[in-house]
Each structure stands twice: as C-alpha cells, then as structure tokens.
Design a protein around this nucleic acid. Sequence first.
RNA 1: GCGGGAGUGGCGGAACGGUAGACGCUCCGGACUUAGGAUCCGGUGGGGAUUAUCCCCGUGAGGGUUCAAAUCCCUCCUCCCGCACCA
Length: 862
Amino acid sequence: MKRYDFSEIETKWQRLWEENKIFQVKADPSKPKYYVLEMFPYPSGRIHMGHVRNYTLGDILARIKRMKGYNVLHPMGWDAFGLPAENAALKHGIHPAKWTYSNIDYMKKQLKKLGFSYDWSREIATCDPEYYKHEQRFFIEMYEKGLAYRKKTLVNWCPTCHTVLANEQVEDGKCWRCGTEVTFKEMDGWFLKITAYAEELLEDLKKLEGHWPEKVIIMQRNWIGKSEGAEIKFYISDIEDNLIVYTTRPDTLYGATFVCISPEHPIARKIAEKKGFLNKLQTFIEKVRKEKREIEAGLAEKEGLFLETYTIHPLTGEKLPLFAANFVLMEYGTGAIMCVPAHDQRDFEFAKKYGLPIKVVIKPKDRDLNPEEMTEAYEDPGIMVNSDIFTGLDSIEGKAKITAYLEEKGLGKKKITYRLRDWGISRQRYWGCPIPMIYCEKCGIVPERIENLPVVLPLDAQIDASGRSPLPNLPEFVNTTCPKCGSPAKRETDTFDTFMESSWYFARFTCPDYTEPFNKEEVEYWLPVDQYIGGIEHAILHLLYARFFTKVLRDLGYFKIDEPFTNLLTQGMVIKETYKCPVHGWVYPEEVSPEGKCLKDGCGEQVIIGKSEKMSKSKCNVVDPDKMIEKYGADTVRLFIAFAAPPERDLEWSDHGIEGAYRFLKRLYNLIIDYSENLKKISYISEDFKNLPNNLLKLRRKLHQTIKKVGEDFEKRLHFNTGIAAIMEFLNLLQDTLKEVSLEKEIVKKVLKECFEKILLILSPVCPHIAEELWKELGHDTFISLEAFPEYDSDLIEEDVFTLVIQVNGKVRDQMEVSVETSKEEIIEIVKERPKIKKYLEGKIIKNVVFVPKKLINFVVA
RNA sequence: GCGGGAGUGGCGGAACGGUAGACGCUCCGGACUUAGGAUCCGGUGGGGAUUAUCCCCGUGAGGGUUCAAAUCCCUCCUCCCGCACCA
C-alpha cells in the first residue's frame, strides 16, 4: 500500500496550483469580495514560527471564504526597508538591496512550501521605486495640504544606530533594536500632522468595537489620550505677559497656590534673561534633560527652580510664586500648569518639599479636610469650598461653571487636549524611501515635481564602518536643481520612517502594477480589508498610522473608506519551554539529558525547566519551520498550529503535539487510500440515503453535524482548534463504524464515499495538499481548493432521540435516551418510575419540575 | 497606581446558565512483531465503597443570585499584557 509521502504530495500540488494560477483573482463585481490580509513580513532572512502561525491562520480563512463563494483577495509582500539591512551591510559587507532581495527570495520559497494560497502576481516589495514613488507623491500632497511640516525638536538619538528614534521605538530608555541607552539631540525633521486627525481617529474607534479586540481599541484610545479642561491666563507683571496654563480641574482654581512651567518654556527664558539668571536656568534645563528618563519613569524627585517672580491669580488677584519644574512637560498642554496641592498629588509633593501653602477648595461630602493634617492630596470630586461665589457647588458642576465664568471675563476658555503627538517621520538612514524635498537657497523648501518621481534611492552607495547614511556624501544624489527656479539646490537626505510603507500597502495590493497610485475601481471593489491578522505588538503604531493614512488618502480623493481594517485578529505568540543550566545559562533541548542534566562540556548540572516563553535564539527555544516541514510536511505543521490553541492565545509548541497531528493525517491517508479503489466509481444522491440502518444514519448525521460545526468555527468564530477537534471526532466515529459494516453493500460504499469526500472538503482549508491528493484518489480531476464548501442537511442533523439528563435538586442522578416526540408529561411519568430516580423521590414532595426540551429534567423536592 | 485579560486533569485546551474535562498530548496496560521511539485496541480528574454497579468531592479563594454557575453579581488572591508625573 502507498505510504503517506507528504513531500511528494506537497511539491506536486504546489506546482499544480502555480501552473494553473488557481489563486490569482480579479475584481468581479458580480461576486461578493473578501479581502484577507496578514501583516506582511520584514525580510529578515528566514521565516519563524510566528510567521507560520500568522499566515496559516490567514490562509485557512482565505481558503474557507473561497469555498464559501467569495472572491478572495489574499496577497503577500515585503516590508523591505529597514535598519537590519544596513546592519547586515555593516557586518557582512553585503549591500542592503542585495541582502534584502536574497532574503525575499529565500522567504518566498519558504512560504510557498507551506502551501499558502496567495495571489503571488500581486507581490509587493516596498523598497521597489515603483512602490515608493507613490508614497513620495502622497507626502508631497500632504505637504501641500499643510499636513507635513518641518520643525526642530528634541529627538531620541541612538548613538549606536546613528538614528533618531520615535518615542515608541524607545523602550525603558533603550533603543528598541539594539538596546543602547538613548540620548537626546536637537534636530530638524519632518512631521505628519496626525494630531489633525486625533478626534476622528478617536471617534471612529467606535466603528471598530466588536470587530477589533477590545484591548487594541483601549490602547489606541489611551494613546490618543483626549482630555477636556480649560486654558487659563495668569498674568506676570514682571514681563507684562500672560502665562497660559492648561488644567483639567478648573473647579480647583481657587486652590491654586503656585504655578509651574516647563524649564524649556519660552517664558522661563524670558524671565531668566530679565532677572539675570540665564546660566542657572540653563544648568537646570540640562539637568532635567539628563534626568528625563528617570523623570519619565517616575523615579526622579520633583524639583523646581523658583523664577523669582509671581503670577497673578486670575480670580483672586493673589500673587502666586512661579517655578520652572522638572515634572512639567513642554510637549503637553501649554507647558505650564497651575498647582493645587490640596487636590493634586504631584502638586502636593512639590508643595511639601518647598513649603508652599496648601489650600482646600474641594471637600468630601461627609467630612472636612484640614490642610495641616493632610498626608496626600484629595483628588476625588466633592463640594466646593473657599471658592467665592462657587462655594457650595458640586465640583463636577463647578468645572463647567468656572470655565464659563473665565470665558465671560476673557480670562480663559474651554480646551480639549490630546496626548497624541505629531508623527516624526525623518530618519537619518540610508535604506529607506527618500523624502522627496529639495532645499533651494532662493525658494526655500520645495517639493519635487510629481512627474519627476520617484526620487530613487541610489543603489551604488557604500555603507562605511561608521554606520551612517551615505546619502549626504553622494553629490550626484544631493545636488539637484530647484523645481521652481531651476537654480542649483540640495536634496533632503533623510528617509522615511518605515512605518510609512506599511501604512498603505494594503491598498496597493488591489492594483500593484497600476501606473497611478490606485485604480479607483479596484480600490473601491476590494477595500476595506475584511480581516486583518497580525501580532499584538502593532496594536498602536502600525494600526494607528494605517488608520491615519486611510483618512488622509480619503481626503486626498483616493479612497472612499474611513477605516482600513474592518475586522482585526491579533494572534498570540508561539512559545516554547526553556532550559537553563546554572553554569551555562540557556541551553538547547539537545543539550539536556533525559534525566535533565546539562550535557554541555560534560557539565552534568541539573537543568531547570523554565516557563514557556516567546521563541528566541538567545533563549535556545526556537523551532525552525524548515526542519518541521521537512520532517512532517506542511499540512502537519499547519494542522498542529491551527489545532493547538485558539488564535488569539499564545501557542505552546510541543514536539509531541506535532506528532499527534502527523499521526492524524497518516491515519486519514491510510484509511482513504485503503478504500479509494473501491470507491472511485461510486456516486450518490441524497435519495440513496433513505431508510439507512441505524449505524449509517448516525454516521451521516455526525458527518453533517461536523460540516455545520466546522463551517461555523472556521468561518465565523475563527476558532480552528475546535473545528479540527470535530473533524477528529468524526474520523474516530467513522473508524468505529467501519468495523461493523460490510463493504459488499452498495449503500455502505455510497455513505463511505460521501463521508470521505466531505471530510476532505472541510479539512482542505487546513491541510490543502493531502486534501487535493486524496480528492484525486477518490476519482476527481478538479482542484479541491476551488470546490464549494459542502452544505449540511439541516433535517438530518436534528436528532430523533436525545440523551435526557435527569436531575434531582440540580444533581445529575440518571440519564436516558428519549425520543424527541415524547411530551413533557410522558417524560415525567416515565422518569419518576426509574429506580434511580424513584429512590430520590420517595417520601418527598415534588415542589417543582424544571423541563428543558431536548436537554434535561430537574425535580425540585423537599 | 490606572486600564485590560486570564486562572479548568500531569500538559495544550473543550463546554448557547443545563451531563465539566470534547479533541489532542503524556502516561499505563494489551495486541501485532526478531525489534519498536511504527501501527492498532483499552484505560487515564481526585477520593471512597458492597468494584460489570454505585456514592462523594472537584473549574484560584470566599460569599451571593438561580431549580441549575467554569459561565452571571460582589469581595479577595495570583499571573500575564498595556499605560504610567499627560496637569
């Protein structure tokens, strides 16, 4: 008998799919579309299990949607710009482009080996000028609309990578890639005005509720960080100017006893100049800058520099001392705050340190507050006191009342503030998309002409040991002429943050070869992405930027949609247990003896089995997809990954588990091959299945129940694990049934053929190769990948008998098979006489009988 | 500190408020074998007994709602993730 030769089977079908272009799609308005997208990979060299999981989940969905009659767009591409290419250039002397393209080559082969149903004709690499030229155009259009601008800012600087990092690329003060301590540097850079869309980005999160993980929505909401408050004017007579502070607690205005501003606030400088302590201020600024990290971590003590001046309280006219303080951020609000120590913990600590007065203006409903006895600020709402005409008001009401009063007097106004900052997109890197701007001595900043795009990244550049971008040193790149006046000019040498490329790739997949950015018909047919799948690590940045781009491109007239991704699935990590030797640290499983001793250098120490963690080389717990495919085949790998855990949860890699998946496929293969010769010519229609013997009826019923469950679990719930469990369950029943039937009978063959065919159909999204092969063995010459998902017979799946659970006082005491025809009354009579139940009812009064049709009956007795 | 999620056998995990532990793994026993780390069959939450049968206990802890709770409500514990001087 034929052995399950997965390698031969898989290569063959992958070849046939490709030759027949069966996964290439075209827009077809007569068919419902479905766009499945997995986050495209960075071509780092080889795919890892996380990719395998991500793409397996997407592929199962794409395949079942195809079978359910959708016109499915399922593309794949490469997020090809980025730092690792330059690092590789430094380390191995390979040009980033060469490195990137050879990685793409390799990884593409790996993905093909996994049998993913991508339309490879739509492949995109973002480092291709034909891709990024459109991005340059978007940028210019944004610039012309005032959505892109240049400003000087204090930026995070990684001394190792020689680059600016976004706030979000800094993790606890360290570079997210290399781990070096990040410093600060003042630099000019380009920014996109994402804050102009803050309100819409926040508001539209409501449209995603129920379709995106709640967690992601909350994270984005917090990131945008909307707060409502007031801006209030505090006059400073020394400089005859108003200081504007921002507060969310205008109700505590009467409790303000001092005012703090950021040391970098222009007014601090102005005062210091006037009062002659500029040096002292400068020293303070530097100290604060140095401590920025600790300050942000909440570790540094609050510290202030008295500016030797006072502000005038807008309502009481009191003189309040003015400080420059290390905890006031220049970037948020107005960079200045009024301090109410009685009702703000930070102000309280500051006041205690510098002996500043504490004035209570809000009291709890049930008690009084005494400033001298307070050990912490009272931050909750309450009743307003010591607040002139507002005394006695509820503080929540007081907020609006005081704001209105200030507004009336021209002393302040209502103000909404967002935590979200504009997006700094300049990177001092080589391997990225050139920013299409030109600096002309006469005309200033001038965008490149659209017709001159792309501004091509020169590939003949050499990356030297410094690791710095070679672009500024390439005269043929830098020197150009001004598009406006024609005089000599210089190009911008920074490149875009690579989050730019991933902010719109999903749309380009609809028309990857179109000369203009987007083909209207394609974009309108395919967008938005119906199901987006990827890791939670992109919960904020990538997803927020893509949402932002979508809105901008909409406003530039390219799209009609507001949101790019209708549904989002964030899949869990692939984790594996770790082994740690007290001497050698993390060790590979091969370095551990069966007794758990370390085998490295004959060490012999007892190895500690650590908890399961995300696969990483440093922890020696990686599993190589190539090796797994080689050993078990792609179908087994896909099956195990889909079966081992629900998609959103972490998946624990198990060497035994994958054996189990392999065993299942072998069992299926052997079973069908065993019967295939006999069944090839068999055909059936539903009429054939009337008056079946009981065991075959049960088998068919189970089959149709399984079809229903798998359809729902795969397509609607995306819980592939339970669907696969149902298929396994069915196979178990099928094998049991086969032991008691004779293949001599025609009807048995018909039932068997139906079972085999349909089980292959429903398994095919998960294990497409073996499904194709066995489909052929059963006599078909079509691609199972293009077959329709089977319908289930809804009359058949209705059981005619069911197992009635019999409870007494909520405890299960007995159960019996009952026909669905039996009435409640009949059931009660029968059940009461059953000995096990009788025993519990004897001498008791039946107070109530709860009857759940087709499920259970519960006697409540006393 | 704030926000979110999760705690179910030896393990991964199933369970519209209705038989807890589907399915798989592990382990144990058996069959077939020169052999088995292949394959097949059976068993596998804990405890107990009068052991082909039956009983009790069990979903992090404690309370509550309900005829009925892993599931709903309250209090608490543990773990994971995100944010964190945002005024």
